[in-house]
Amino acid sequence: MAMITFRINRYNPDDERRGHYVQEYQLDVEKGTTLLDALNEIKWKQDGTLTFRRSCRSGICGSCAMTINGVNNLACETQVLGLGNSTVTVEPMRGYPVIKDLVVSLDPLVRGILAVKPYMITHSPPPSDQERLQSPEEREKIDGLYECILCGSCTSSCPSFWADKEYIGPHAFLKAYRFIADSRDEGSREHLEALDDRHGLWRCHTIFNCVEACPKDLNPTKAISELKKELVRRKLG
């Protein structure tokens, strides 16, 4: 057990006069406690007004992404004692407008992902007797791509996104490449359409913040370079 101080950035839209402020909470934390457990404990026992998103508490839904000690991560996958500090700073994810406390508006995230048509597009009819099959080698090609849970950590940390609110964003590039790399998908042109644009791929400055920020250790910049190559191949080929 260890007494941990949580410094939580708070904001209530109904109290504009107070604006953004930091509130401290103390909590006895034992080994195995995740930040999400701690936030729940604070909300349930100390301050019911504390607001944050959460759903699956097992690193799949991406709802509880927040900036923890300056780094984007999922609260449910962050061991409080593993952070190694007696003080833990919790902020809403940066780069997005704050709605309340730790809840941010993910509208830009949704706009970006919809731009790349994030679903499998096929033009040929499916085989009549079976589903569209894929060899293990073909399946392997989408490793490191399909695992994205759309938590928004990457785009939150991206300076290109800070500078251009219409920037499609690394999360959407990764998703676009997930389908383009999928042997069953026949809609590469449709996925790529929105990317060859001033709000698209070419605004990436290879700063690698998205790679640093991804809680799932994925590499959106790699997807971006593959997409750039694909676009160039199409133009020149």
Binding site: H20, V71, P97
Partner: peptide, 17 residues
Amino acid sequence: MRVIKRYRIHAGTFAWI
């Protein structure tokens, strides 16, 4: 609504700046 525009500095940030 406030939007914070900074993130932890690392090699990529230095290279870019």
